[in-house]
Design a binder for these strands. Structure first.
Ligand SMILES: [Mn+2]
Ligand SMILES: [Mn+2]
Ligand SMILES: [Zn+2]
Ligand SMILES: [Zn+2]
Lengths: 148, 148
DNA sequence: ATTGTATTTAGAATAGTTCTAAATCTTGAC
DNA sequence: GTCAAGATTTAGAACTATTCTAAATACAAT
């Protein structure tokens, strides 16, 4: 089993990003981040928990939530809320939007966004716009094929 | 107290929209819709419940959820999910987007949207785009003033 | 009036998330 | 190295939002 210090050294960028927010790199945080990068299907906390348990059977649900929060706090992970259900998590920090399949609920990264300038949004006096979140709704390739 | 048939007659459009989905206009459904139109601040189910109780003290939480679902089903109300918290409801069926104040959580209608053509979104092969949901994030006038 | 269906209701059940407090780990001062 | 302070993990309780269940009520059609 990897020691904390060894595994920490092997992931400099993570260590730094966490340190910037006054947080440490721990095996659990590293594992959670790894799980997210391995399969970028925008899993829920519960899915992250189940995947993380394979390599780290002792990990708890509370820790998964703590780690996800820590990673979000230090800007390594984005939260994605698209429907009533559980929050999903995305380790892709490039500016991108999400395609949500209304049929099966799957989520895909779309490497294209609408910038506040592009959109030419006219807001009533006093509002201060920070960023635009664009969610594309429709059918994923699988569901589109089945719908035919 | 108004009888069912009398109140139903006074709201033709509601009756029709519901009938189109095989649903009836009931005093509860009418009340819930009225609450939403009275203050279009995108209340949660719980807020709708509390407001509806003033004029209809017997109404139950389950009924509020049932009514909201019925109104959504027949296209009279939109669901709005912007954060981890409770779903919000919007009776404005014009095409519009939402401004979400990241500070205080208030939600405003913005009568401007980004059409699939405008956006010129290039999706990978197979995806079928139905509509674009645009959520504007930033500070509302009150919070922007305080932040200065 | 009677019957079948839709709706409402209270409360139980469930899902997702956050909180709590104890145990463990890490870091830094000595 | 030892020790203390603080950070992190953990299990489980608590909490919030939502859905489900089953009985009561209301309605519409015969
Ligand atoms: Mn993503
Ligand atoms: Mn709205
Ligand atoms: Zn799909
Ligand atoms: Zn605000």
């Amino acid at each position: 089993m990897l020691t904390h210090s060894k595994s920490a050294k092997s992931d400099g960028p993570l260590t730094e990003a966490l340190a910037h927010s006054g947080l440490r790199l721990t095996p659990q945080r590293q594992q959670v981040h790894e799980v997210l990068r391995e399969k970028m299907d925008h899993p829920t906390a519960d899915q992250v928990f189940m995947r993380a348990k394979h390599k780290m059977p002792e990990i708890s649900m509370a820790t998964v939530y703590n780690c996800l929060d820590a990673l979000v706090t230090c800007g390594l992970v984005r939260q994605v809320t698209l429907d009533r259900g559980a929050t999903r998590y995305c380790p892709n920090m490039q500016d991108h939007s999400h395609f949500y399949c209304d049929e099966c609920g799957s989520v895909y990264d779309i490497l294209q966004t609408i910038s506040p300038e592009d959109a030419d949004i006219k807001l009533p006096r006093g509002f201060r716009l920070k960023n635009i979140e664009t969610n594309l709704h429709g059918l994923c390739p699988d569901c589109a094929a089945k719908a035919k």
